[in-house]
Design a protein around this nucleic acid. Structure first.
Lengths: 217, 217
DNA sequence: ACAGGGTAATATGTATACAATTACTATTAT
DNA sequence: ATAATAGTAATTGTATACATATTACCCTGT
C-alpha cells in the first residue's frame, strides 16, 4: 500500500501524473506501453519512470514482463471475487467504526454525495455517477478514524476499479443495487454499527455478483 | 502489498537477501544504512538496491529521507493500534473462511505447529516460540482459500512484527495469551466459522493490548 | 510457397557518471 | 567561548551509457 508522504521525494508528482495518464488514456486501449515512451512524454529519463512503475506494480495496477512492455494487470474471475471479498470485509469494518466515530456534520456531507449520486443517475450521466460513487465510498472510509485501514481500503478500491473499468461502467446499465447509499447513511445516522457494516457488505457483495455475472459471459 | 512473481526479474532474489539482512542484522541497531553500503555488500550497483528499497518502503518496512539514509519505519502507539485492528479483522475473516475451506489434514498440520509452539514455550525458548507462532499464523492464513487476502495479511504481519521486534520478543516474558492456538484449532476442527473468527480476533486483540501496555511505558 | 535460422531492432536490467541537496566541520568575528 | 557562516563531505536523485534478453523480420534453402 502506497501512502504518499508530505515531505516526499520529487518523484511524488511524477507518480501522480503517470498514474493519471495511464488510467485516463491508456487503460482499455491496445497501445503498447514502454518506459522510453513514458520518459519522453514526461520529459525525464527512464530512471524516475521506473521507480513510478515499480510503485504501480506493487499496488497491483500493472505488470511488467521483461522486454514485453507494461500491461495492466488482469484478474481472473476468481481473483476478482477474492478482491471483492476483502473489500467487503475492510469497508464493512470501516463503516462499523464510522458509525461510532463520525461527526454529525461529516455524515451530512456524506449524505450530500449520496444525493448528488442519485441526481446523476436520474440524469443518466453514468460516468458522473460512477465518479461520485467513488467519492462517497472514499469519504465513508475516511470517517472510520483509522488511517491505516482507510489508506489500504482506498488502494484496493483503486486497483479494483481500474481493472474492471469497462465492466464497471457497463454495470451501471444493469439493475440498481438494492442495498443503496441511503441505507448506509441511515445506519450511520442511527449510530448503528452492526447495520452500517451489514449494509456496506451487502452493497459490495451485490456489486461483486453483478460484475461476476458479466465476466462469466 | 508485494507478491513475488515466479517468473520474476533478477531482483527478486536480491529483494529477499536484502530484506533478510536488514531484518536479521540491522533492525534494532543504530547502524546507519545507506544505499552505497548495501550495494557494496551485495556486490551490485545502487540501481537494483534502490528498487529493492522502494519495495520495502512501499510495504511499510522502512522510510527513506533524502540524504539522511534509510530508517526502519516507526509507528506511534496509535498507529500500532490501527495496524492491530486491521490484522484482527483480516485474520479473523481468514479464520472464518478456513473453518469451511480447510481440509482435515491441513488442520492437523496446523495443530502440529501449535504443539511445537507449546513445547518451545515450555522449554523457555522464546525466540523459537516466536518463530513457530509466526508460522502457525501464516499457515492458518493459507487455509482460507483467498490468496489475495492471505498475501495481504501476511505482509501486515511482517511489517507489524518487524516494527515491534524488541517489544514483540519482550512480550513473551509477560502473561500468556488466554485466547490460545488450541482454541483456534478446536474451532476449525468443529467447523465453526463464527468461533474461529472470534477466537483469532480475541487472540490478536489481547496481543494488541499487551503491546500497547509496554509501549505506553 | 514455406520452414528455419540468423541478424537487427527493441525493451528492459544494470552500472556509472553527474547534479542537487543535506549534513558536518572548521574558521572567523563578536 | 559561542554563534554564524562558508566550505567540504556525504548521500540521494537523475541522466546516460552499456549489457542482456526478447521479438520481429528478412533471407535463404528446399
Amino acid at each position: 500500500m502506497y501512502v504518499p508522504k508530505k515531505e516526499s521525494n520529487g518523484s511524488k508528482e511524477l507518480y501522480d501524473k503517470v498514474k493519471e495518464y495511464m488510467l485516463r488514456e491508456l487503460i482499455g486501449t491496445d497501445n503498447k506501453i514502454t518506459e522510453e515512451m513514458l520518459a519522453t512524454r514526461f520529459q525525464v529519463s527512464r530512471t524516475p519512470i521506473r521507480e513510478v512503475l515499480k510503485h504501480l506494480e506493487h499496488e497491483g495496477l500493472i505488470e511488467t514482463r521483461r522486454n514485453k512492455g507494461i500491461t495492466f494487470r488482469s484478474f481472473s474471475p476468481e481473483e476478482v471475487a477474492e478482491v471483492y471479498d476483502v473489500r467487503s470485509v475492510l469497508e464493512g469494518y470501516a463503516a462499523r467504526l464510522a458509525a461510532g466515530e463520525a461527526s454529525d456534520e461529516s455524515i451530512d456531507e456524506l449524505a450530500g454525495y449520496m444525493e448528488r449520486y442519485t441526481a446523476a443517475r436520474a440524469d443518466g450521466d453514468t460516468q458522473q455517477a460512477a465518479l461520485i460513487d467513488s467519492v462517497f465510498h472514499e469519504k465513508l472510509l475516511e470517517l472510520c478514524g483509522n488511517t491505516y485501514l482507510s489508506d489500504m481500503a482506498k488502494n484496493i478500491r483503486m486497483v479494483n476499479k481500474s481493472l474492471l473499468l469497462k465492466d464497471y461502467y457497463f454495470s451501471f446499465h444493469g439493475d440498481v443495487n438494492p442495498y443503496n447509499h441511503a441505507m448506509i447513511v441511515e445506519a450511520l445516522r442511527n449510530r448503528d454499527p452492526q447495520k452500517a457494516q451489514r449494509m456496506v457488505q451487502k452493497h459490495i457483495n451485490w456489486s461483486k455478483k453483478t460484475i461476476l455475472k458479466i465476466l462469466k459471459d
